[in-house]
Design a protein around this nucleic acid. Structure first.
Lengths: 238, 238
DNA sequence: GACATTCAAACAGTATACATTATAGGCTTA
DNA sequence: TAAGCCTATAATGTATACTGTTTGAATGTC
């Protein structure tokens, strides 16, 4: 039970990049238990390579905020309510604009992919399949985000969205929340189909606000860090 | 002539962190020639340490966009006009909001620092001292940015601002631009002193727009990457 | 004289060994 | 029994050696 996580090498680029991709995907799929400790030497042994590429990958993930590195192993960060609020503030600033861009630049193929993802999400929500719903949601997001021509914008958004993903997983099993998300996706999708940048902007704004409210309401265990807006954003797991 | 760059260790944390800080400061101060090649083993030898901490620091800087890693040493990225436009788009989205926050949270000490930085900038502009002007400018920015309570917001801003810093250095010797920047700083400073978040927002918006226009106008050598908004800005080694 | 081919140097990638540090758990003592 | 120290251990941090690849130059051929 100490090693339920299976890493396998994916053949692309150097070892560090392969390991990085692998670990990041594991995190993004929510397959990493919150208290789970990632140790470079263990992963290295499992992959049959040395510590250094694994260590490099882990440190990169730390720099990007996916993990926190302690003197006692790498783990997932535990977000406080303040953290989540901070991340959502940045997302509120960036995503509507990005959606407006996507409304201009999405091509027919992209719209098709988007439509398919929306339908999958609807089906998964109807069936109560949280896993499937999550995947469709990610596909939807990745699709329109990929159409944004400003790479720095889209990459920044992707990173921040991933950071609250840990929290998101908890809320995905919540039926009413699924319904709200699907409704938001439909609205955004409609704006994209119409190539209406203004509508995309407005609906994405609304979507993010909704998402934040839901997150906050469904996550009572998260504690505000401090009344004074304290700056201890990522605390170690106690 | 192959080694005009002098790195020295600063005693804080582990070696990687020290080297990272050192190199980043060197970049931020504009002391790194655009075509300059940074080689881990050279820096390591100069510091009297091994390659690995230096290598770690360099790779972190690559991940953060400060450097690009090629198969033949690390160098400063060369930004296209599209890159600069992309970075400024993100800054336009984030900085006004951050300034509004700072207007609320800046304390007396912060305002004093800010006032001092503004006066230094004015003096430097009057004297035509580009170096000094640049330092005052950075101090001003770092001060109000430090008052922003949303760390993720302020750190993202700092990073993107640093990325165009290479370009900024070119424009700082331009007298009319200095005047425009000082005027913008004065306006923002006034809003901060009055604790007027709305004014801070508006004036920062104006300031960024102005800055972007100036950059674009003064940088004809930068080439647009491609008509289609191509995405080869900073090629990272993956 | 121009182009191709090979060879050497330089530098990043990887591996392994050693040093350091912080935490946990036990042991001692009050 | 509780509290504090102390040691063992598990993990990261650092150093060094080796390997592979790319680039650039030099030499040879057409």
């Amino acid at each position: 039970m100490t090693k339920p996580i299976e890493f396998k090498r994916v053949g692309e680029g150097n070892l560090r990049a392969q390991v990085y991709q692998q670990i990041r995907l594991t995190i993004q799929r929510g397959e990493l238990a919150p208290g789970r400790k990632l140790v470079d030497v263990d992963i290295a042994a499992q992959l049959g390579i040395s510590r250094m590429p694994v260590r490099d990958a882990l440190m990169q993930l730390v720099h990007e905020g996916y993990l926190v590195g302690t003197t006692r192993g790498f783990t997932l960060p535990t977000l406080t309510a303040t953290d989540v609020a901070n991340i959502f503030e940045v997302r509120r600033l960036l995503e509507p604009r990005a959606a407006a861009h996507a409304a201009r630049t999405l091509d027919a193929a992209g719209l098709e992919t988007l439509t398919a993802a929306l339908q999958e999400a609807e089906a998964a929500a109807a069936a109560g399949d949280a896993d499937h719903f999550f995947q469709a949601n990610s596909a939807f997001r990745n699709c329109w985000l990929g159409a944004v021509e400003n790479d720095r914008l889209s990459q920044t958004i992707a990173r921040f969205a991933d950071h609250v993903l840990v929290v998101r997983l908890k809320t995905l099993s919540h039926q009413p929340t699924q319904a709200v998300i699907v409704a938001g996706m439909r609205a955004i999708h409609e704006a994209f189909v119409k190539r209406d940048a203004v509508a995309a902007y407005d609906r994405m704004t609304h979507f993010i606000q909704n998402a934040e409210e839901r997150f906050m309401r469904l996550s009572p265990p998260l504690q505000h860090s401090n009344d004074e807006g304290e700056n201890i954003p990522l605390q170690e797991r106690s």
